[in-house]
Design a protein around this nucleic acid. Sequence first.
DNA 1: AGACAATACCTCGGTGACGATGTATGCCGT
DNA 2: ACGGCATACATCGTCACCGAGGTATTGTCT
Lengths: 177, 177
Amino acid sequence: MLELAILGFLYGAPLHGYVLRRHIAALTGHVRPVAESTLYPAIKRLEKAGLLVRATEPGAVAAPRHVLRLTEDGGRELKRRLAEPAQREITDENHWFTLLAFLRHLEDPAAQAAVLRRRLAFLEEPASFFYDGDRPLRAEELDDPFRRGVLTIARATSRAELAWLRDTLASLDRAGR
Amino acid sequence: MLELAILGFLYGAPLHGYVLRRHIAALTGHVRPVAESTLYPAIKRLEKAGLLVRATEPGAVAAPRHVLRLTEDGGRELKRRLAEPAQREITDENHWFTLLAFLRHLEDPAAQAAVLRRRLAFLEEPASFFYDGDRPLRAEELDDPFRRGVLTIARATSRAELAWLRDTLASLDRAGR
DNA sequence: AGACAATACCTCGGTGACGATGTATGCCGT
DNA sequence: ACGGCATACATCGTCACCGAGGTATTGTCT
């Protein structure tokens, strides 16, 4: 998820670590903050894998900056991760939102639509958080107000997302024709 | 999050690992599956910390089971984690839903309301995923349909949750009087 | 002049999570 | 008789992530 965000932000726009950090904080920081001690090692991993290169520039205000630029491999890897996300990226909202934030970089409407369809299939599966044996329970069947809240909120999210998915898929299909 | 789920499921209902695993899979598995190799070490950690005890029973169908039972410390720790959640438990929906699933165990309506109010405060902060400088961007201002989707879905979730929070807080306040 | 915040990057130790793999039993279908 | 599946638990190596702490520079407030 973090690596995807790094690749996504660097795609077509070289940045140095500090600015990248603020971009990532804006994207997911209110929900799931990313520590500096996570970001810098992640950058090094990507550099070691040949997905980005660093160029030292004198700092505009303070210490020297390491300007990060995606390599061609890095661009390809971003598109691969966007086009063929792991199942976790589809099911976990945090991961999914990060993917959506950069899905435009995939360019091909058919490939974008294929990813949205995977999310659609996931949302259309009957699933709950609470069960009576194998039967998923509905919000109305629960006495517990907190568990009822979980289902109520999840249902609202699901409805909004399904509507958006169907709209967006329709317009991507039009674009693909 | 996993430890909270273990403590929550065991509260008042001893279970063995295999059943616990299925409970956890039902609760969060469709979004974020938990590997066996994560659950068993987590159980051991909690046992080592004195929060639960294991009793070996002959297996009903197969290998012997380890029936897990919360200790008094375990019950106290569950309530402590429910009453004083880390900020991550409040902001990250995955964590928050897990907390909500067990918040009824807190019993005291005032304590439950205090936790809900922390979530309410978080949701009422103006926040976005995308910014123009420091200004949060609204869905309508975005050209990117995928980023627009993120904001549309987040807004729907937020609205549903705010409505539910206010309702539930009102009835908790009535119960507290 | 000195304190402090912001910029900018880095290392280290600990730990939680994962995939792969192993062990063993009992039931069911063929 | 035997394979496959569900039950039931466990270990191992690897790695991402975190908090704490460190280094250095520039600008701002007092």
